[in-house]
Simulated assay, not measured.
Amino acid sequence: MRYAQGGGLTDAERTMRERLRLQAVERFESGQKNAEVAAALRISVRSVERWRRACREGGEAGVLSKGSPGRPRLNEVQVARLERELERGPLAHGWTDQRWTLARIKTLIGRLFHVSYTVEGTWRLLKRHGWSWQQPTRRAI
């Protein structure tokens, strides 16, 4: 399924879609054909074929929602630990100077929590938790 603005399903839409798949599984078990299931649930035959294959390969669990496709997020305990580690400074984590960059913080998150963020995602995480972008001013020699 393609989405016009690059978006996906909301949690409510995902739940509704999952209910449809579970209804389709009940109909598969009662012996209905793909076209009958598609007509009854008002969905495409192609989707029914995909769901039947997933049901055949993984049972009812094969058609359940996999959840949001978004990036894994750090929980509050992990964010608190990240903030403590950031306060320790880059030197404590093996960098040669005292500047935190988004790339370094991204690397630190990967090392500490085994979670991959993009540089932009790292910035959004920090901004969401009250961190701001700062650049030190250079002193004239």
Rank of each mutant, 00 (worst) to 15 (best):
M16I: 12
D97T: 06
W51R: 05
G31V: 02
L108Y: 08
R84G: 09
A140I: 14
R128I: 02
V45K: 15
W51L: 14
G59Q: 04
S44T: 08
L102S: 12
L22F: 09
Q135I: 13
K127D: 13
L22H: 15
A35S: 15
K127L: 05
E60L: 02
R53I: 03
R53E: 13
I105R: 02
N75C: 12
H129A: 04
G7I: 05
R2M: 06
R73S: 13
R99E: 07
R138C: 12
L125Y: 03
R17P: 01
A92K: 15
W133P: 02
T137E: 11
D11A: 15
V77I: 10
A38P: 14
T118G: 03
A40V: 03
A54C: 03
V37H: 06
L20W: 04
P90M: 00
W131R: 02
T10Y: 03
E57H: 12
L112H: 04
R139Y: 13
R46A: 09
I109K: 05
L125F: 02
Q98C: 08
R21C: 00
K127T: 14
T15Y: 13
A24V: 09
E57Q: 05
A92T: 12
G7R: 11
E29S: 05
I105K: 01
E76V: 03
R71V: 08
D97S: 14
A35D: 15
